[in-house]
Amino acid sequence: MSFEWMAWTMPTAIFFITIACLLIGMTIWQALAPSGEREGFLPIITTPGDRLFIGLLSSAYINLAWLGLTSLSLWFAFVIAVIWMIVLMRWG
């Protein structure tokens, strides 16, 4: 049994490890100090976990839109997505 068929590469490994760390970190944070639901600038009441999901999904869309509409480096979109994530987690 080998995992050769999964065709791992360094960038995707880093990507998934980052996501996994985010999820584990969130779980530990919420287990130690549960922070309840609240209403920020988003039109719905959210928990930090909800905001993380919204942030990740919208970041994926930001990056895809950048890739599809412009020919500039994707790092710009990445920076925008990170800033957006922070804004969303803090004030969303």
Partner: peptide, 9 residues
């Protein structure tokens, strides 16, 4: 029956 960490997600 229960509410637990991350149940909704």
């Amino acid at each position: 029956r229960y509410s637990f960490l991350g149940d909704k997600h």
